[in-house]
């Protein structure tokens, strides 16, 4: 942002100060995220920089907390690292199990939220859609309702789904959904839906409807038009909605605490236990890995955004 040529000296000083303030705010935003990276290589089981770390002594740094991520919870962590060790790690290490759980829950809840959400966004973006405002409000409500209330409500519902469904309940009664993967997946899908709706609707608003009319004109049926014309163009919106839904699930702890059990221990729940129970820099190691993953995801989103703008004929300035 350049200053206009007619800026007074006072304005120039003020402009410099302004940039400095902004730099400070950016530091506030980013410092807590960067600080965990060096600390995760701490050789000591503490959360602060040791003398050795500050003097850049290699002895002050170690990979022990990353190693701990692998070995924590293993049956025989001290054995030679051969095939048995690795399979023990893969099956028993707590953080690995948590990562697997997070992946399973994240994948299925994202799939559910994205497919239902995209379909609904297609309907919502049609001008003929009846009761649009009311329905949008209902579909977005999982994002607005405080998560503690959601978790509480779902806890009772999943403890005994039949009691809520009333006449809709299946004849044979319903199984309990608390402490099951299905329960956590359904709950996370609910929480992810608003994000899918918002991002896909936003892409659809800028979608040129004459393209689908042209397709129809050329003899394509509605299904074919959707897959050949609409979907490729709204893909960026769908993907970023799916990413949001995945991150929502991947970062969610309250609902998992309420309706999941030991079996459904996800990464956030494991971290929560870690923070509340035994605080060790293992959490910082996980945090570092997660930060790297989010940088990767962020790059994907940015690339998708650029692609979508290129497709719509808008070039970045």
């Amino acid at each position: 942002m350049a200053l206009p040529i007619y800026a007074s000296p006072l304005e120039r000083v003020w402009h410099k100060t302004y940039l400095l303030i902004c730099a400070g705010i950016f530091l506030f935003l980013i410092a807590p995220i960067l600080i965990v990276i060096p600390l995760s290589f701490n050789a000591e089981p503490y959360f602060t920089f040791t003398e050795k770390m500050l003097s850049f002594d290699p002895e002050g740094y170690s990979l022990r907390w990353y190693d701990n991520l692998l070995t924590h919870g293993m049956q025989a962590p001290d054995m030679v690292r051969d095939g048995t060790w690795w399979s023990d790690m893969w099956n028993n290490a707590q953080w690995i199990r948590a990562a697997k759980n997070s992946a399973i829950v994240g994948f299925w809840s994202t799939l559910l939220a994205t497919s239902l959400g995209t379909l609904a966004a297609l309907g919502l973006s049609r001008p003929e859609m009846p009761y649009r405002k009311l329905i949008t409000a209902i579909l977005l409500s999982p994002m607005i309702v405080p998560v503690i209330i959601t978790a509480t409500g779902l806890f009772f519902f999943y403890s005994n789904p039949c009691s809520v469904l009333g006449p809709l309940a299946p004849e044979g009664g319903c199984a309990r959904l608390t402490s099951t993967y299905l329960g956590v997946i359904l709950a996370h899908a609910t929480l992810g839906i608003p994000f899918v709706i918002i991002t896909v609707t936003a892409t659809l608003t800028s979608f040129d409807k004459s393209l689908s009319r042209a397709a129809a004109n050329l003899g394509a049926g509605p299904v074919r038009t959707f897959f050949k014309v609409q979907l490729p163009l709204i893909t960026p919106g769908v993907v970023s909605g799916a990413l949001f839904a995945f991150v929502t699930s991947f970062d969610e702890v309250v609902v998992v605490l309420f309706i999941g059990s030991h079996e459904q221990q996800t990464i956030p729940r494991q971290m929560w236990n870690g923070i509340r129970e035994q605080i060790s820099p293992s959490i910082l190691a996980v945090a570092t890995i997660l930060v790297i993953i989010s940088i990767a995801l962020l790059t994907v989103v940015e690339l998708l955004r650029r692609r979508s703008e290129r497709l719509r004929g808008l070039t970045p300035q």
Binding site: F155, F156, S159, N160, S163, R176, T178, S179, S261, H262, E263
Partner: peptide, 21 residues
């Protein structure tokens, strides 16, 4: 063996919901 923050809570909920595991 399953863990809970306070086992009394899930127990009460399970009995209330008539679905004890």
């Amino acid at each position: 063996m399953v863990a809970a923050d306070n086992p009394a809570t899930p127990i009460a909920a399970q009995v209330e919901a008539n679905n004890v595991t």
